[in-house]
Design a protein around this nucleic acid. Structure first.
Lengths: 183, 183
DNA sequence: ACTAACATGTAACCCGTTACATGATTAT
DNA sequence: ATAATCATGTAACGGGTTACATGTTAGT
């Protein structure tokens, strides 16, 4: 029941097509709530049936036509109310942490490599986050209300990413002693 | 396909019943991979059918009988191999971050309250983590291989929790100015 | 011709959550 | 009696992933 509200949230300021939603999801809201295009198209259909979204076909030059969705008044009301409801948090599930419980001289090299890969990936993501922050959120205190919220979500991602990097370093250091010593 | 391996991981050192697994999950591996008892019982059945677990009934005095599960040789092999496979990471899905994209003078008080609640909850969890760390993982470098891994998972939780607290503080400060100023 | 990007869907399956269901044992 | 803890399940539903499926437009 939450993807619906994530989609509506993405439509607060701009009307978007399913394709645009699934593309933008990977670079903004999708940092925190990812969804495949299949899910998005299905949810758009449900939301339209509920009367929370309206749709119109838009002709494009040089591209296939697209179907653009926008919030109805009922949709905006539902979204506003939803904010006051109970929040569900689904903890991250990361197999790497389960693998750590299986740490062993036989697999320490592999797990070390996986942590290094993760570190690399996170550095790239952080670079992207920082670029966005510098470009659009340099002075958070003077942003309008909604943008402050978006900034805080971005800050959350940056904060968490930095923590992850420092954890990787700590892990790699502890693991680096194991291969030679314990064999 | 990952709950199966989380359960097998929990059985590496001790044989456990479904009840014990679902209880222990909430205080160790479950920090990183939670599961309801219903899921656990179903998974135990599947793993038994696959030949990765064996079971035996144990009579207890003063308590109902329990069915205790243990890893078979095939189960241990499957688990060892699994560590070398590709890791799936499911990013956390937190409705609170989506709600932040809806931040507004009308709901800033509510969102502020939710962040405060979360902060409180995280402080309690961190207290638990720290207690475990002090009691069992005071000197990580001198732990045996597997325990080092468990320590790193714990360190991950502590690290993440501490950064969550600092994010909450940052968020509460930014939000504190909004109610009076923007009304 | 072929590739890449644009654009929209359906179907099957797996996993997780919620609700339902039962029963033993101990302590008050 | 009754509540609390121990103990084990089934069934229905909903959401997410993977695989399948189709078609347009532009560039090489």
């Amino acid at each position: 029941m939450a993807l619906a509200h994530a989609i509506m949230t993405a439509l607060i300021e701009d009307d978007l097509s399913g394709y645009e939603l699934s593309r933008d999801f990977t670079t903004s809201l999708g940092f925190f709530w990812n969804a495949s295009h299949q899910q998005i198209y299905q949810e758009l259909r449900k939301l339209s049936e509920k009367g929370w979204l309206n749709k119109r076909e838009v002709s494009q030059s040089g591209k296939p036509n697209k179907i653009v969705y926008g919030l109805t008044a009922a949709g905006r009301d539902a979204l506003s109310e939803w904010v006051f409801g109970t929040t569900r948090t689904q903890a991250a599930k990361d197999e790497l942490l389960v693998k750590l419980y299986n740490l062993d001289v036989s697999n320490v090299a592999h797990i070390t490599a996986e942590i290094s890969e993760r570190r690399e990936g996170m550095m790239q993501l952080l670079y992207l986050y920082e670029t966005i922050r510098r470009r659009h959120y340099a002075e958070p205190a003077s942003l309008p209300a909604r943008r402050k919220g978006v900034y805080l979500a971005l800050a959350f991602g940056i904060n968490q990413g930095e923590h992850f990097l420092s954890w990787c370093d700590q892990a790699l250091e502890l693991l680096s002693g194991m291969e030679s010593v314990e064999k």
